[in-house]
Design a protein around this nucleic acid. Structure first.
Lengths: 141, 141
DNA sequence: TTCAATGCAAACCCTTTGCACGGTA
DNA sequence: TACCGTGCAAAGGGTTTGCATTGAA
């Protein structure tokens, strides 16, 4: 979103540290992820990765994204009635505004909302493991 | 959730007002929805409806839920990596806590969070059409 | 009587997986 | 060399849809 994405090298390191091999296909996907400043879905990532390395299959894209996700390098975003979209987890936690007309995604962060969530959960005897906050919005005129 | 669900008769009226016919199958589903104080998925609603009227197919459950949803009588909840769950829209808007261990769903409402959301969107030039806030929680010990 | 609603089964879409081959470490 | 990662195609799971039939109004 902001150009402050994790670099491909950083993600590579995270993968290697976990004993995961860096193949041509994965290198291509990491590059695509590092350069993405939108929130592409698997298909779009596949399309972009193919421009770098044509022997990338969609299955590999999904498998690699799962690996990256389980190592906390990538987040899977599941918006309403749409295929999952992905983002690197370079930036601190944030939530999303989805433009209902264009599908554009804007990131935001509110400490106040975070604090309120924790408070509400606590009052009900829970602690928040993770949360999801999505604002489906329209541009004001 | 609270026993304050819309009654089957109320939902029937809402449907009739829109020119929708009340069949045996739909009557059964409405009864099930009215009596549900959890948040069942389509399969579970199908199972329950069949106990009342055995000739209800899953297709009809989905078709009727879509009709009810588009008339604003029912909400479709799409939690992470799980089939959609449904609730009647008797109560005012609220958000959900999902117990990550049991799958239980608790409703809550926070005016403060609602207000903050509107404010954040506004600052970014948007107005909120709808939102989704889900707290995936664990019971505190 | 009319035309919406139905059940069934096939189709859909996104995602995951089994298998035999290929390439990284 | 060892074995993880790969492409391909098929399977999976939830949901929708085409079609001929049934039934609500």
């Amino acid at each position: 979103m902001t150009g402050s994405n994790a670099t491909a090298a950083e993600m590579e390191e995270a993968l290697r540290a976990d004993g995961v091999r860096i193949t041509r296909q994965r290198a291509a996907l990491l590059k695509v992820l590092a350069e993405a400043d939108d929130h592409p879905d698997a298909n779009e990532l596949h399309r972009r990765a193919r421009e770098i390395e044509e022997t990338v299959s969609l299955a590999t894209v999904y498998r690699t994204l799962s690996a990256l996700e389980s190592q906390g390098v990538v987040h899977r975003l599941a918006f309403e009635g749409a295929p999952a979209r992905f983002e690197t987890t370079d930036a601190p936690h944030h939530d999303h505004i989805i433009d209902v007309e264009t599908g554009a995604v804007i990131e935001f962060r509110s400490e106040k909302i975070e604090a309120l969530q924790a408070l509400i959960a606590e009052e009900l005897g829970y602690e928040v493991v993770r949360h999801r906050l999505e604002l489906y919005c329209r541009k004001r005129k």
